[in-house]
Design a binder for these strands. Structure first.
Length: 460
DNA sequence: CTAGGGTTAG
């Protein structure tokens, strides 16, 4: 029989482990468990659940599984929270089959899934762009009469927005409100973001007002979302005004908003201002994550400050941050811009070796770099070898061909693009047609023009 | 355990 004192010690240990896990000090947490066992404090289900959740979050799902294994060996039965942590881990890495296996395993062990098991499964389906299946999970929740959590609606609404069903999310929101549901700030933020992304900035602004009227105070996320929306609609000054307000109200406590602004300034060629904010990010000592590093590295590359870019890459590595596909794409783009095609190629090979599947953007960058440097044949060779191409790929090559005076080849490509229903650039079309005309193919220029017009009608 | 930021053409 355990005494009250033992239970108290276990609880104390759990509190200690929870704070270590929160600080991502997993090794220390483990050593606390080992030390505890040595002095007679037994870990319980809460102890293991805490560690499993942390391992899933910080290391990966397999690390979580191995703790589960140890837990079972120690004779402690997992509960619904254990499984929820594992399901959340699987969802983080988009491992749907693992999620479903875990669900089965739960049922086998007669552990009843709760609302969070379902919420997470629904989220997983949405993340994998399977909205129908996700919605089926929601119906299942209703059918099984499991009481909903406010987050259930948030996950549902976010999933709908992210999968292109913003209209449905909006309808859901309105009908929920009619049924007396009070939306949280998160709910508003989700909806505003969805509306902004689908080009309905005006409705988004209305919801911003509604949110305030409902008694919520907009937070940093609300501000960043609305600001980004302004930038998307090319209302740069309006967006910068929001940013200024954010700073005044003290909502710029991380690099998030600064990165959004710096990136916009970079894209619109306002280098001096971009640099100003960049400097601010650096000197202010924000705790930078991978995305922020990517932002800054990109800026350095565009400025031609390669030394600074490398220094920062090194710093990110030293911090233990993992580079992602954006980092590598930025790097490849930077290498191409500075004419280091050999290194860029090496890095491209490196990327596929590291298991990055979609490197279309990097390839487009490469082709663009080759065209700009006048290596059109190399670019064409690369173009032919690509199995996936998008409008960027085509417009780059079309532009490259025009630059080399090969207008007939360019027009052929442009037409194949149009036939596939791909969006083409106005400037691209203009250059091809005027090129054909000036090189004596005015008949062909007219033909291209009418074919484009026809294709547009057909695809409409 | 849900919400915000980052890559390519002109």
């Amino acid at each position: 029989m355990w005494s009250i004192k033992d239970k108290l010690s276990t609880r104390l240990m759990n509190i200690c482990i929870a704070s270590l896990c929160k600080a991502k000090q997993l090794e220390k947490a483990e050593s606390v468990i080992v030390d505890g066992i040595r002095i007679g404090v037994q870990p319980d289900v809460v102890t293991y659940n805490t560690v499993i959740a942390a391992y899933c979050r910080v290391v990966g799902i397999d690390a979580g599984y191995s703790i589960l294994h140890r837990m079972k060996e120690a004779g402690i039965n997992p509960d619904v929270i254990t499984y929820n942590s594992l399901i959340a881990g699987a969802t983080r890495y988009c491992m749907l089959s693992r999620c479903l296996d875990l669900f089965d395993e739960m049922l086998e062990m007669s552990i009843l899934p709760d609302i969070w098991s379902y919420n997470t499964l629904m989220h997983c389906f949405f993340k994998l762009r399977k909205p129908d299946e996700a919605y089926r999970v929601f119906q299942d929740i209703i059918l099984k009469d499991i009481s909903l959590h406010p987050a259930t609606f948030n996950i549902l609404m976010n999933g709908l927005c992210k999968n292109g069903y913003t209209e449905n999310a909006l309808m859901l929101f309105r009908s929920l409100k009619r049924h007396g549901f009070t939306p949280q700030l998160v709910t508003y933020n989700i909806l505003i973001h969805g509306l902004c992304k689908s080009g309905r900035g005006k409705t988004a602004k209305e919801f911003l007002n509604e949110l305030v009227e409902a008694g919520h105070i907009p937070n940093a996320i609300t501000y960043t979302t609305v600001m980004k929306c302004c930038f998307r609609c090319r209302q740069f000054e309006e967006g910068l005004k929001i940013f200024a307000e954010m700073r005044r109200k003290g909502y710029t406590y991380d690099a998030f908003a600064y990165c959004t602004v710096a990136s916009m300034l970079l894209k619109t060629g306002r280098m001096n201002e971009a640099n100003e904010y960049l400097g601010y990010i650096i000197t202010n000592g924000f705790d930078l994550d991978t995305v922020s590093f990517n932002n800054i590295i990109n800026l350095y590359y565009k400025e031609g400050q390669l030394d600074n870019a490398y220094k920062l890459l090194y710093e990110a590595e030293k911090k233990g941050l993992k580079s992602d596909k954006y980092t590598h794409t930025i790097l490849i783009d930077g290498l191409c811009r500075t004419g280091n095609f050999k290194e860029a190629q090496q890095h491209l090979d490196c990327m596929s070796m590291m298991g990055f599947d979609s490197n279309l953007v990097a390839l487009n960058s490469f082709i663009n770099g080759l065209c700009k440097a006048g290596h059109l044949d190399h670019a064409l060779q690369m173009f032919e070898s690509m199995d996936a191409k998008d409008s960027f790929t085509y417009s780059t090559i079309v532009h490259g061909l025009c630059k080399a005076g090969r207008f007939r080849a360019a027009s052929k490509l442009l037409l194949s693009c149009v036939r596939d229903g791909m969006r083409i650039l106005k400037s691209n079309k203009r250059v091809v047609i005027s090129g054909l005309r000036s090189s004596g193919f005015s008949h062909e220029a007219r033909k291209v023009q009418s074919k484009i017009r026809l294709a547009k009608i057909l695809h409409y």
